[in-house]
Design a protein around this nucleic acid. Structure first.
Lengths: 209, 209
DNA sequence: CTGTAGGGTTAGGGTTCA
DNA sequence: TTGAACCCTAACCCTACA
C-alpha cells in the first residue's frame, strides 16, 4: 500500500509534448524546470517525463526500424551455451504420474506449414526454433540471434520474445524444456522410481546461490 | 545524445581491471592508451573508464542511495542494507560463473519508521529462504508462511511470489532447486560430469511440441 | 589545453498496480 | 493478461579544478 499512481492529465501530456518540441527529447530535466511548462509538470519528476514519453511513443506506432546513428553496436554474446549435441537420448516415452506438471518429452521438430494467420513474430519464432533444431530446444538468445540474422528487430524485441514464449507455452503451442525432461533422457523410467514423484514435488523450490 | 548506450562486455571489464592493476586507479588515460589494453578499450574514453570503475566498486558495496536527481517527490524510502554471505545449500560444482553475485538483504534492525513503507518483497524473500535454511531450498508455501509470520501480506501474494521467484532465478540471484541439484545428492558430483553445466543452461529452453 | 574527481542526468530494463 | 505508471542503476554528461 504505497503508491496511489498518478494518472497523466491531458494538460500534462500537452505540456510534455510542447516541452519536447522546444528542448528536444532527452532533455527531461530542462523541460521540467522550464517555467513555461513547470506549472503543468510540477508534480512530475524528470524521470516521470522520460517514462511517460516512452509510453506515449511506444503505444503510438510500432513497426518502425531505425538504427542508423550507431555503427558500433557490438553484437557479442555468442554465448557459452553453444549447447553441444551431446545427450542423444533413447527417446523416452513419458513418465506416468508426473503428468500433472507441464513436463512433456519432446523429440520431433516439425514446423510444417500453417501460421499464416498468426502474428508475424510467432511465425518467426517457430521458424527459428525449427531451424536451430537443437535436441533440447533453443534458448532465448539463440532464438533472437537467429531471427536477427534474417531481419531487423525492434530494440525491445527481447522483452516481447519472452512474453510471447510464455504465451505460446500457455497455449501449448510450445513447450518449455525443463531439467526433468532431460533427466528422463538419461535414465529409463524405472531407474527413477518413486523418486520421480519426489523430484517433481521439489521442482518448485528455491535456494540462494 | 543519440547513442544507444554501450553496455560493458566482460573482456572490457577484465581489461580495465588489469589496467588498474598495472597503472593504478586514477590513471585512466594511461590505461586507455596502453597497447596492452587499448585493443579492448578502443571504444571507451578515459572518462568512461573512470565511470565504469566507479560503478564496479560502488555496486560491490552497499545499496542505499539517496536519489538527488529527481526534482521533487520525496518518497521516503531509506533503509539500510547489509550484505550477507550467501551460503550454498548443496555443493554444486558449476555455479562458479555466478558465484560472485552477492545477495543483499535488508537489515531491518532498529527501523523506527519501518513497516508502512513500500514493500521490499525481494528482500523479504531472501530473508525467508536464508532463515528457513532448508537443505534443498524452500518451497513457495514455506516462504509465504515465513513472511506472513512477520508481517501483513496482500492477498494475492502467492501469485506475486511465484512470478517474483521466476524473475530472481532468471536474474541468477536465486537458483531453482531442480532435478539436477537433487541428482547431485544421489550421486557423487563426479558422476555427473560436464552435463551438469549443460543441463543448467537448458533450464529456459523452448522446443516445438 | 590535458586529465581527473565527483555530482548530475539519462536510457533502458525491471517491477507494481489496476 | 496487458498497459501505464513507477523504480533501479549502469552508462553517460557536465563542471570545477588541478
Amino acid at each position: 500500500m504505497g503508491n496511489p499512481k498518478q494518472k497523466w492529465k491531458s494538460e500534462e501530456e500537452e505540456a510534455l509534448r510542447a516541452g519536447i518540441a522546444k528542448h528536444g527529447t532527452g532533455k527531461w530535466k530542462n523541460i521540467q524546470r522550464d517555467p513555461e511548462f513547470n506549472p503543468y509538470l510540477r508534480s512530475r519528476s524528470n524521470i516521470d517525463l522520460k517514462d511517460k514519453w516512452r509510453n506515449m511513443t511506444v503505444s503510438a506506432g510500432s513497426q518502425s526500424v531505425k538504427d542508423k546513428s550507431r555503427t558500433l553496436k557490438a553484437k557479442s554474446s555468442p554465448d557459452a551455451a553453444a549447447v553441444v549435441a551431446a545427450s542423444t537420448p533413447l527417446s523416452n516415452p513419458h513418465t506416468s504420474a508426473v503428468a500433472a506438471v507441464d513436463v512433456v518429452i519432446d523429440d520431433s521438430s516439425e514446423a510444417a506449414a500453417d501460421s499464416k494467420t498468426a502474428p508475424k513474430y510467432n511465425a518467426m519464432i517457430f521458424e527459428a526454433i525449427s531451424a536451430l533444431n537443437e535436441p533440447n530446444g533453443a534458448d532465448t538468445s539463440a532464438i533472437i540471434s537467429y531471427i536477427e540474422r534474417r531481419q531487423e528487430l525492434p530494440q525491445n524485441f527481447r522483452r516481447q520474445l519472452s512474453s510471447r514464449l510464455r504465451r505460446l507455452v500457455a497455449q501449448e503451442k510450445l513447450e518449455k524444456v525443463s531439467c526433468l525432461s532431460l533427466l528422463c533422457n538419461f535414465f529409463a523410467d524405472d531407474d527413477i522410481p518413486n523418486t520421480s514423484a519426489h523430484l517433481v514435488t521439489l521442482l518448485n523450490n528455491f535456494s540462494l546461490i
